[in-house]
Nucleic acid binder design. Structure first.
Lengths: 329, 329
DNA sequence: CTGAAAGCGCTAACAT
DNA sequence: ATGTTAGCGCTTTCAG
């Protein structure tokens, strides 16, 4: 009465184990009558193929790893969903691990995943490029929101959308801006700051740089406090979570948004739509990002020798209620 | 130049494969000199034991599955962390899957996990008890926040803390309450409603029952709108996320909290501390819940025959800024 | 303390 | 269309 294997089924059906195996993997190679008999027996016995045994012989785990820098950040849940969906459609399971914002944990986890997965996606890595490169040596890997020549990557570029944000604010009369920078280990943060600086230079507009702040609600409150120390009437927050913190801080101090200050976020997480006032932000194509990452990874798994792929997806500007005309006071 | 195995190492060190295996698994059985040599060779070759091969022979995947009803709910990230930590300490990896609030996906996923994990934790299941029981047949399983006689469970009971909440509100002069009920498929929701009802009956106080509402920010806004249709001066929200929605809705309509209405949440997720005003709520012992779940599961894996365990951990009342004296208007 | 050998459950040639 | 056979990489008796 032990756990059923292809042998128990084979015996029960009077065929060989190979036939049972084929019945599941290459059904076209086995006669319909036998196949049906096998399938029936399997269901009856509650047969579950052993993925260890299969993995051992095929060399495939049919599992991909996903390392996120901070599961707590609302940016990730949506991404996780999209990745899980796509992976499932490709016949793989997802193994998710949270690095808790620690670069060390990140590389430790990829090392640990090596033997259990076919490949790994590292989302918003905090590790140094060198560490990442080294950790991924010989393991199919795609980086999300961090380009690196030697590894594949899919990133969301908000440069153009941030220009749109700037223009939007400019049209509302703002001339003095604050840039609330994100974590220094984040490529996205650097990239966004750069875009905003570039835009500001082009417009010959005032830009106060504050931060870096942590990409948390709390970091946002600090950013909000810092913002109030400046004359800026409009602020670019690193992301929506930060922006929400800014909103909360301003609200707490009785500063109205967008009446007295305009605030924009980035990413368009759920929170951005539900907070009051709703956030003007840049929508990241989460579904695409996730799906593309899985597809690129799949290609790397199938052709480990190939050259790394790099795909860039643009964010898109969306105006909501946290921005408005510059106060005339 | 293929992937190193215990054989490559054995050959290189002039020992047998068995010795290499022992060097890693039962180091005390091999002489120090040989062991050191083996370890050195392994490091040099970048040896990684194949978990498939080991799993095949040991019958252990050294991996546990975690199914969450909705990764998007801020309740889970903390839980995931605690579970991942504990699992890691017990030598297991974590395979996380999101059921996206679908009961069907839940049971589908446990079926799919069967062959890849040693056991599974289902957090806040939405499936029927019968479906759960059936899906977990023969698979070590512990339910989080849902008791079920035949399966192990660890639940957080807030009954006593909710009484404290009631008393706290009562002392502030509130006599008319609203109960904003959570999802009907959630055991926690039913349990909390029941506790609040019981308390209200004991105090002979007015209690309007509203809902059920979805456990989302949006659901909270709806609950907030519903709340304004009543005379209640204090509201029990199902959880913190809902409570935040209520707060947002009231703020949007210019109703002050706690000035005009007091609002309490439940769970004490990060958000509860960061929202304005900060939420009076009931703190769930996340770390304990997660750690206990893993420990119980581990026991079931090691002794699959044993009787199910049921552990209950209490939540604790914490007063913050979203509750105050009943308005005198 | 170490080696030889068997086998975990499955797949993939190679035969038939 | 089906059976035979040989491993995949590892652990684990059983003998030395």
């Amino acid at each position: 009465m032990s756990k059923p294997t292809i042998y128990s089924i084979a015996q029960r059906c009077g065929v060989s184990a190979a036939t049972v195996s084929r019945a599941f993997n290459r059904p076209e190679l086995v006669s319909e009558a036998v196949r049906e008999q096998i399938v029936a027996a399997a269901r009856e016995l509650g047969y579950q193929p052993s993925s260890a045994a299969r993995g051992l012989v095929t060399g495939r785990a049919e599992m991909i790893g996903l390392i996120v820098s901070d599961i707590t950040n609302p940016f990730f849940p949506l991404l996780v969903r999209s990745i899980q969906h796509t992976a499932e459609r490709m016949g793989s399971s997802l193994m998710l691990v949270d690095a808790e914002e620690s670069a060390a944990a990140e590389v430790r986890h990829v090392a640990q995943l090596r033997s259990r997965v076919d490949g790994v996606i590292v989302a918003s890595p905090r590790s140094s490029s060198a560490a990442l490169r080294e950790a991924a040596r010989g393991l199919p890997c795609v980086l999300l929101n961090r380009p690196l020549r030697e590894l594949s990557s899919v990133v969301c570029d908000n440069t153009s959308a941030l220009f749109d944000v700037g223009e939007h604010l400019y049209k509302h009369g703002h001339r003095s801006y604050a840039l609330l920078a994100g974590p220094s280990a984040s490529w996205a943060a650097a990239r966004r700051s750069q875009a905003i600086r570039r835009w500001a230079r082009g417009r010959e507009v005032e830009l106060a740089e504050l931060g870096p702040f942590r990409a948390t609600f709390k970091g946002g409150r600090q950013a909000g406090a810092a913002l109030l120390g400046t004359e800026a009437t409009a602020a670019f927050a690193f992301d929506d979570l930060t922006a929400c913190g800014v909103l909360a801080e301003l609200a707490g101090r009785g500063v109205s948004v967008p009446g007295e200050r305009s605030v924009v976020g980035c990413d368009d997480v759920l929170l951005a739509r539900t907070v009051t006032p709703s956030l003007t932000t840049v929508t990241a194509p989460m579904d695409d990002l996730g799906a593309t990452a899985v597809q690129v990874l799949t290609r790397r798994i199938e052709a480990p020798g190939g050259p790394p792929e790099h795909v860039t997806l643009p964010g898109v500007f969306v105006a909501r209620d946290s921005t408005g005309p510059r106060s005339t006071s």
